[in-house]
Amino acid sequence: MKSKKKSMGLSKRRNLIGWIFLLPAVLLICGMSFYPMIRALVLSFRTGVGANMKFTGFYNYIRMLQDKVFIQALFNNFFYLIIQVPIMLLLALVLASMLNDKDVKFKGLFRTAIFLPCATSLVSYAIIFRALFALDGFINTMLIKIGILDVPINWLGNAQTAKTVIILALIWRWTGYNMVFYLAGLQNIEYSIYEAAEIDGASPFHQFGRITIPLLKPMILLTAIMSTNGTLQLFDESVNLTNGGPANATITMSHYIYKMSFEYSPNFGYSTAMSFVVLILVAVLAFIQMKTGDKR
């Protein structure tokens, strides 16, 4: 017994203790997260009405290709992703480097103000945006008073403008969040590098492009992956701001999955199959971003 204990060695024993500490969390994650995921995967291969379901293989996944609404939702999600994420991340970068400047006054105030939208509830901000962009809402009234418009624009009644409003709302809600990541990253960049660059005659624009962006690359990668993940799972804005309308022009995949499960005649097999497509899309996109962005 004694000899056996000795043969374990110090590092092995430490490892064992480490694993014992990890065990509760691992078990919880397995039970609460991985187990339902596996059950969901099994469920996605089944189809049927109510609780009577049969195993049908990849039928649900093949079926998706003919689902016009799902394809529209997929397209919408990618539209938001391609337009909104780059704008938001660039804006966050610019704001972060501006607010990182030592000479700016009221830095704390500005940082808080820009981060604050992120603390609001998703549902309430979506409803406020809906009210702002109503036919007789604040935005229309303002634009008419200033003289830019003659007649109010039906922002949420038109496919293009409705998408624009969702993108604006997303930018407002999430830019500050990403800015905080960049600010944290910027603290690791020596200020002397900027001073040296200034002495060498680099303009602020050059400094931003040649110093800030390359040194923040890991952060940018992280935020890009998080934003991709968040955009593909977009739900609250589609439900509360536009209710998917007009004519499904702004519906997202998650919103459609919800409708399939709880509003329509429930079809859980198909719903979970769609959820797994979202999962695969996120995984593939994250993989591509890592391949192209992380050259360490």
Partner: peptide, 16 residues
């Protein structure tokens, strides 16, 4: 990658 998978899967897990 695992981390990202877990985040995205929370959606799938949510349904079931």
């Amino acid at each position: 990658i695992l981390l990202v998978l877990v985040m995205a899967a929370s959606l799938a897990a949510c349904v079931t």
